[in-house]
Design a protein around this nucleic acid. Structure first.
Length: 219
DNA sequence: CCCTGATTCGC
DNA sequence: GCGAATCAGG
């Protein structure tokens, strides 16, 4: 599997969102955790809270002469709090395509994907902790804007617009959604919500999850 | 043991 | 550039 533009975008999105390398690897598929980390580094992403010695020098590698190349310690940057997660009513964690990591670690916070570009931080206790404050944002109706309503053709596709097929190939009015895609994903927010659905383990499922995956994020 | 990210180095 | 192997820490 190669690092296509889209896969890189997804990697970036998830990495900055706080997903672990393993989660990202699972999500993308075809790559290992190490591959993800390696790529992230080559992309210059790093600067994420590592379980391993955040601040101090790390030199672990004895075989060959350790190159005394002091890497300037990257400015300590707290993991960006995903706006989507903060805003999304975490009650709804509808779905996920890849096998969701369910690590039962003591007091670990998990990042569960709640859809494209959307992750919620979840501690062991708060399985579905209610979030009283009303979501600051309303989800827009899943309807293409009038502009794009008149058909987004195959030639109009780029990485910035939703590639969700409307209708069926072969039909005269077959076209693509054409809305702004969720950054890092091939579809718009609405269609991501449809595309990335899978079932959670039975115990994690709840009857009527509203559907607040992340929400649109402006770039 | 499990996990995490970081680094090296052969390809 | 890629990623397995390895390291180091929780």
């Amino acid at each position: 599997m190669s690092w296509t533009e889209e896969r890189i975008e997804r990697l970036k999105a998830m990495w900055t969102e706080g997903a672990t390398a393993s989660q990202i690897a699972d999500e993308l598929g075809g790559v290992s955790r190490n591959a993800v980390i390696g790529k992230a580094h080559r992309l210059g992403l790093e600067a994420r809270p590592s379980p391993v010695k955040p601040g101090e020098e790390k030199e672990h590698r004895s075989p060959a002469a350790a190159a005394p190349t002091p890497k300037p310690a990257p400015a300590e940057r707290p993991a960006p709090r995903p706006a989507a997660a903060a805003a999304a009513p975490e009650q709804a964690a509808p779905a996920h395509p890849a096998p969701q990591r369910q690590r039962a670690q003591s007091d670990n916070i998990q990042y569960r994907s709640i859809g494209p570009g959307g992750f919620i931080r979840q501690g062991p206790g708060d399985q579905q902790a209610p979030i009283p404050p009303a979501p600051p944002r309303r989800l827009v109706p899943a309807k293409p804007s009038p502009e794009v309503a008149d058909k987004t053709s195959l030639l109009d596709l780029n990485d910035r617009i939703c590639k969700w097929p409307m209708g069926h190939p072969g039909e005269p009015d077959f076209h693509f959604c054409g809305n702004a895609s969720n950054p890092g994903f091939p579809y718009c927010v609405e269609h991501c919500g449809v595309a990335y659905q899978a079932q959670l383990p039975r115990r994690d499922r709840r009857p009527p999850p509203p559907l607040p995956f992340g929400g649109p994020r402006v770039r």
